[in-house]
């Protein structure tokens, strides 16, 4: 099974009533690859993430993870197989501290999810994992601050931390640098590069600088279909992509 792709989307379809959001999506992501999904607003990128993580049921097609069919699994079962995600809309637990946020994320992986009645503080590995992640995110000084009061860039960093603190091997990040300044974006890209080391990364991103800097492969989604998929060079040169989406941005990058 080692040859099976980390993530395989085979003819995925999603309709909301009569609205066809995803028409026929085929994407293959190899293990350890950094794969970017780009496309204009409303192309269905976030919906695709919802499909992969089992948040909404698919209307058709199959999704598999390392050769295992996960199409009809629940969110938490998919997570337990090693898929974690961040949301486009900031979705931290605002009233909990930074540390507590990370503990919620780490609990399942550290075998603490079953014993629900057990004390939180009494479990060393859980605390250590959360502390380790605080360090990595550069948020140690903000340990006890409620997540809702963090600066925006720190919130986005914490979201990435939440996605990986449970030891996921496949991470889906939805526009992790949206709304950031140039400097904050650089910091976020460095963090993403570091945390995706040795993992499979799927990232939805609008910032073409980030995409071409980070991605090994790129899929272009337009109107519910993948119109191109390949290396950054392939995608950049693809005439369909140039006309449909990249336009002027591609000229600049060439």
């Amino acid at each position: 099974m080692s040859a099976a792709p980390a993530l395989l989307l085979d003819g995925v379809v999603k309709n909301f009533g009569l609205v066809h959001v995803l028409r026929d999506v085929n994407i293959t992501v190899a293990a350890g690859e950094r794969h970017a999904i780009i496309g204009p607003n409303g192309a269905g990128k976030s919906t695709l993430f919802h499909m992969i993580t089992g948040r909404f049921p698919v209307s058709g097609g199959r999704i598999s993870l390392h050769g295992r069919d996960i199409t009809d699994m629940s969110s938490y079962d998919i997570y337990r197989l090693g898929v974690a995600r961040s949301f486009q809309v900031t979705s931290l637990f605002n009233r909990l501290s930074v540390f507590e946020n990370l503990r919620v994320g780490a609990m399942r992986n550290k075998g603490a999810g079953h014993a629900w009645w057990r004390l939180l503080d009494g479990y060393g590995p859980l605390r250590e994992r959360a502390e380790e992640m605080l360090e990595m995110l550069g948020l140690t000084a903000r340990r006890n601050v409620p997540a809702g009061l963090l600066a925006y860039a720190d919130q986005r960093a914490l979201e990435i931390g939440l996605a990986i603190v449970g030891g996921a091997t496949t991470i889906l990040l939805d526009e992790p640098t949206a709304g950031m300044s140039r400097h904050e974006t650089e910091r976020a890209v460095a963090l993403i590069r570091r945390v995706s080391e040795g993992r499979t990364l799927v990232i939805v991103e609008h910032d073409m600088g980030v995409v071409f800097d980070l991605a090994d492969r790129i899929s272009v989604l337009d109107n519910g279909r993948v119109i191109a998929s390949g290396t950054p060079a392939d995608v950049r040169g693809d005439p369909a992509v140039r006309s449909a989406y990249l336009g002027a941005a591609a000229e600049v990058l060439t």
Binding site: N101, N109, G113, G166
Partner: peptide, 15 residues
């Protein structure tokens, strides 16, 4: 307490 704000997100974290 986490689920009070984002039940969906808690499920995404394997609970």
């Amino acid at each position: 307490r986490a689920a009070l704000t984002h039940p969906d997100m808690v499920a995404m974290l394997g609970h």
